[in-house]
Deep mutational scan, measured.
Amino acid sequence: AVSDRLIGRKGVVMEAISPQNSALVKVDGETWRATSGTVLDVGEEVSVKAIEGVKLVVEKLE
């Protein structure tokens, strides 16, 4: 799938994300809905860990 190429890519949080709420991230110039197990604020850099349906699963870039 096209989205599989995004695993391992870096992105930027466009809307705050919490474990209860998905929000938008920008990866390679494209906007995607994403979820995370932690709270992520706007502007934080993230890494794509997986794809669940049409959502990216991201975590904060260390």
Rank of each mutant, 00 (worst) to 15 (best):
R9Q: 11
E62H: 12
W32L: 05
A1V: 11
N21H: 12
S3C: 12
E62P: 12
Q20G: 15
K60M: 05
E15N: 06
V27Y: 00
K49I: 15
K10R: 10
L56S: 00
L40N: 00
V48P: 01
E52C: 14
N21A: 10
G37E: 14
R33G: 09
L40M: 07
M14G: 01
S18F: 09
S18D: 09
E44H: 05
Q20C: 14
V27C: 03
V54W: 13
A23H: 07
R5L: 08
A50H: 06
T38I: 08
G29Y: 03
V48W: 00
I51V: 11
V13D: 00
S3D: 09
N21Y: 11
Q20H: 12
V25G: 02
L61V: 11
L24P: 03
S3W: 11
G37N: 14
E44V: 09
I7C: 10
A1C: 14
I17M: 14
K49V: 15
I17L: 13
A34C: 08
E15R: 08
E62T: 12
V25D: 01
E44Y: 05
N21W: 10
L6G: 02
E15V: 12
L6E: 04
R5H: 10
E59G: 05
D41C: 15
E52H: 10
L6N: 03
R33L: 15
V25I: 10
A16F: 15
L56F: 03
T38N: 09
V2N: 11
V58S: 00
A23M: 15
T35D: 06
V39K: 13
V54K: 12
G37M: 13
A23E: 03
V57I: 11
W32P: 01
G43H: 03
G29E: 06
V2P: 15
V13C: 06
N21C: 13
E52G: 03
S47T: 15
T31P: 05
K10G: 06
L56W: 00
E44G: 05
V58Q: 01
V25H: 01
P19F: 10
A1R: 09
W32I: 04
E52R: 08
E52N: 11
L61M: 09
A16L: 14
V46D: 01
Q20R: 08
S22N: 10
G11E: 05
V54C: 15
L61I: 12
R9D: 06
V58C: 05
L56P: 02
K55V: 15
G43Q: 02
P19D: 12
D4K: 11
V58W: 00
Q20Y: 13
L6F: 06
G43L: 04
G11L: 00
V58M: 00
V57Y: 09
E44S: 09
K26G: 05
E45R: 09
V25A: 01
D28E: 07
V48Y: 00
G8S: 02
L56M: 05
E45M: 12
V25P: 02
K26W: 14
V39Q: 12
V39P: 14
A50M: 06
E44W: 09
A1I: 12
V54Y: 13
G53Q: 03
V27W: 01
M14Q: 06
G11Y: 00
E59N: 05
G8V: 02
L24F: 09
D4Y: 07
G37S: 14
D4H: 13
E15H: 08
